[in-house]
Each structure stands twice: as structure tokens, then as C-alpha cells.
Design a protein around this nucleic acid. Structure first.
Lengths: 265, 265
DNA sequence: CGCCACGTTGAATTCAGTCAAAGAGCGTGG
DNA sequence: CCACGCTCTTTGACTGAATTCAACGTGGCG
């Protein structure tokens, strides 16, 4: 039974495990969360600027992105969401979304009701901590994006984005470490990095000519991660994959025990 | 007594009140939080990249900024913190800070221990909600920065930053609506907006020549907010000052009552 | 008074954007 | 099966916004 769950380990579980070690019970609870998936086609808006946020979601398959449309028609892509990413955990406090979320490819979401979110925080401290952690990581990713847009060259920005996506992918998927599906057009890369698609194209060509990447049929492979990270000034520390400090571990153990009584009588 | 507290209304209370209506009790609790201030000089690092985060802080006086230093010596300023801003609420989950925080002017902080943070969330639901809200606002500010850096012209970026700072200031301070202390050098503005200080200088001169701003002895006044917002494509909605949806209000009322028993027997 | 950090200005340079057109890949339907 | 049309990619020539470099002001403070 446990073996089954482990084999079928969802991206969510894999990701959260990087932050906080989860109990078998936690894994079971998380697996249950993802049972009711809803499917969406590619190029569909999941959430639109101005909507009232309702529940939280886990992205279980596919890929999506947050974006803002400006009055003059320009678009800025804020972040990409890959399997295992959670969003809208506390957004229900807001009156209106300040950005939209759209799919890049056919995508599946599991909805988490507000009640479930509150229950997770109340009764599953390790999951609660891990979810907080996801929020922290997302903030860190935003900060890194600001750094990239503010102070990196166009080449550096492209290299940085490729590195980030591959590192995040690594954290939720077994197997191929330096390759991934990249269902992004050059227009989308440009709208993410504050560049034009023409310029992105020239930079990608450069990378291909220098044997740093291959990109065929929407598959990206980083041939020389070292060199790319150097170009990007990339350091994966900001993703904070690497567990909690001792102190937090101890704290969570204590909470776990406090809950053990009522929950396993 | 209550009148006294109201008169001395701290920036923190003023800011949180924009999000969730606070009870007199809440105001008292928040006032108590800010009693033990620690003072720091200008140009001092409060937190350094790599530090293990320990507790949370409220900035009560002065001004600070989050920043990242890059290997090549460049600096990117991430956000500015003004009185009433809270930081580090959940950062203690992390092993290491991925950025630093420094003061711009003499600044005072009140420390909130981890235990206090947890107590606030457990026993003062309205404060807890308001603090969550602060986190949401901060995320929204980061997203807006990404939009500015990615898709706005240099002129638009400068205008946007001035608007944001003045709007945030308005939310914590009575009186002058379109003016504020701006203790930033042009180098700092440049490091915030992904520009060079030379270019920032030329843009500010332009704004002055067009009678859009005055800037004398570190005091900034926006003479034509409308026009500046137009240049920036600025819309204050992303700051989410404006209260919670009905639904959340009702939910908080319920929680409040649940807590009324144990706390006021 | 004179230092020093910050602000201001000009001229040359460059990185990235704009515009325009051609090529490649892919699904669809004749 | 191939031709068509669509979207995305690629390429070149030109333009322009912002940077770089370098010098000169200036105002606050010891």
C-alpha cells in the first residue's frame, strides 16, 4: 500500500518532500487532495484579472503561467507553474485578482477548498509548513526575476530562465536532469524576460551555436549547465530546496506529537 | 485609554486597518507589539544575505530596503520598507536569507518573536488575516515591479516608482497626500529600476521641467499625480487597499466569536 | 574652508528594438 | 498524399533608447 503510493508519488509530494520530510499519513492526505482533477485545454485562462479568488489549486499535469496585460496591449509573464505547484492558498482574502493565469498546454488542476486549506494548516503541521514553504519559494522566485530583469543582460536573462525551469523541473521529476519539455514560444520567453522575440531568437541561436543547448520539437536540453549558470550568474540557492533548519524540524516534531492524540486514538 | 491609543495610532495599525477592521483589543495588542523598539543608524544592514532568519520585525520609524548583490558587484534593490511594514513573518522556515535588508535613514524596528507570531495567528484572527494580507500585498508589489522592469520604459518606471511610494505612504500617514520624504539617491533609484543613475537623473530633470514633480532637500512632491500615473500606466489596484470581500468578513466574525469564550471568560 | 558624496551635463557607444520579409513545421482537409 | 494555411522561427538592415565615460557643479558637514 505504502509502496504503491510511493511509486505513484505525485509531483506535489515530491516537491513538498524537498522542504519538510512528510509522514506516510501526510503523503496519503496529499494524494487524496489530487484525486479530483479538472482538465483544461491549452491556451485557456484559468483565472482572469479582476476575478474574485475562490479556492486554491494544485497543478498536477501540464504547465501554466501568471501574466498581466497592460493598457497598451503589452504582456508581462510573471511566473510559470509546473506540476506540483500550488496557487491561491491565501488569495481568497483579496477582492480581485491583479493578474491572470493561463495554460500553455493541456493542464489538470486539483481544487482545494478553503475549508481543506484551513484543515491542512490546523491538523497536518508538516503539510502546513511545506505549503508555507511553497509560498516562500514563490516569493523568492519573484525576487530572482526582479534581479534578472533589473540587472542581467539579455543573454544572462535567457540563460537564467532556462536554468530556473530545469532546476524546478528536477525537483518534481525523476530521470533526465538537464532536459525538459519547454512548451514556450519565443514570444512567451520574450514577454517573461522583458525582451523582444527577435532578440530572444538571436540569443537562443547563439546558445545553440555554442553548444550550450539543444531545442528540438519543444524539448530543451542544457548541454553545458555549468557554463549557462555562469552566463546567467545563476545560483540555485534562492529556490531553497534543502530542508528546514534543525530548529524548525524539532518544532514540527513537537506539533506532530500534540496532534497524534486526537488523530490516532 | 482607548482614545489615547487611537490618537497615537501606529503606522502598523493604520495599515492593517485598510485590510481588515480591527477591534479595540486588536489595536491594543498591536500597540503592545511595537513597544520594544530597537534603533539602527542609516546605511546599516539589518539582515545579510546568508543569515539564518530568526524573528519577524515591524518597521516603526525610518526606511529600509531589501537588496541583492550580484557576483559582479551590481546591486538590485527589491523593495522599500516604510513604517507599518512587517517582514520575516514566515521566513524562519528558511535556512538562509537570499537577500539583504539595509536602512536608508535612522530606523527603528520592533521584534516579534516566533512565539508571538504563532500566538497572533492562533488567538487574534483579524490580526492574523491582516498579516496574511500584508504578505499578499508584498507579493503584489513584487509582481508589479516585474511588470515595470519588463515592460515599461525608463520614464514609465521612474513615474511608477514615485507613484507607488506616495500611495503606500498615504496608507500609513495622515496629512500630505502627494508629498513625502524621499531619502533615496539617484543611484538607489537606478538600482531599483534597472537603470543607470545618469539616466534616472535625466528623467527626473525632465519631470521637473514638465512641472510634474518637485524634489528639494529630499522632499518629493508630485505636482500632477494624474499625469504621472498616465506616464507610468499606474493603477493602484494592485496595492489591494480596500477591505476584504463580504465573505471573509463574515468568516472572521465567526472566528472572533469562537475565540471570545476562552479569551474573555 | 574644503572635502566628499551626490547631482548634472555632454559626446560617443552599444545593446536591444523595430520593421519587414522569408523559411520551417505541423495539422487539416481536399 | 500533397497543398494550403496557420503559427512560430529565422534573418537582415536600420533605428533608437539607454549606457558608458568623463568632466564639472553643488550643497551639506566636519
Amino acid at each position: 500500500m505504502i509502496a504503491d503510493i510511493t511509486r505513484a508519488r505525485s509531483p506535489l509530494v515530491t516537491k513538498l518532500s524537498h522542504f519538510v520530510p512528510l509522514s506516510a499519513e501526510d503523503v496519503r492526505v496529499l494524494a487524496a487532495l489530487c484525486l479530483n482533477e479538472e482538465r483544461f485545454e491549452a491556451d485557456t485562462d484559468l483565472v482572469v484579472q479582476g476575478d474574485v479568488p475562490r479556492s486554491a489549486f494544485v497543478l498536477t499535469h501540464g504547465m501554466a503561467f501568471r501574466y498581466r496585460l497592460l493598457p497598451d496591449g503589452k504582456r508581462q509573464i510573471l511566473t510559470f507553474m509546473i506540476p506540483g505547484d500550488v496557487f491561491g492558498l491565501h488569495a481568497f482574502l483579496l477582492r480581485a485578482m491583479d493578474h491572470s493565469i493561463g495554460t500553455l498546454v493541456p493542464t489538470r488542476l486539483a481544487t482545494i477548498s478553503r475549508a481543506t486549506v484551513l484543515d491542512l494548516f490546523d491538523h497536518h503541521p508538516r503539510i502546513g509548513a511545506a505549503l508555507w514553504w511553497c509560498a516562500l519559494q514563490e516569493e523568492a522566485i519573484s525576487r530572482e526575476r526582479i534581479v534578472a530583469l533589473g540587472r542581467r543582460s539579455a543573454r544572462g536573462r535567457v540563460a537564467y530562465l532556462l536554468c530556473e525551469l530545469v532546476w524546478r523541473q528536477r525537483a518534481v521529476e525523476r530521470g533526465e536532469d538537464d532536459a525538459m519539455r519547454l512548451p514556450l514560444t519565443q514570444v512567451e520567453l520574450a514577454d517573461t524576460l522583458g525582451l523582444t522575440s527577435v532578440h530572444v531568437n538571436r540569443i537562443m541561436r547563439g546558445f545553440r551555436e555554442d553548444n550550450l543547448i539543444t531545442l528540438a520539437r519543444r524539448r530543451l536540453t542544457l548541454l553545458d549547465v555549468e557554463r549557462l549558470q555562469e552566463i546567467a550568474g545563476f545560483n540555485q540557492d534562492y529556490l531553497h530546496f534543502g530542508g528546514a533548519p534543525e530548529e524548525v524540524e524539532r518544532y514540527l516534531d513537537r506539533l506532530e506529537q500534540d496532534h497524534a492524540g486526537p488523530h490516532r486514538p
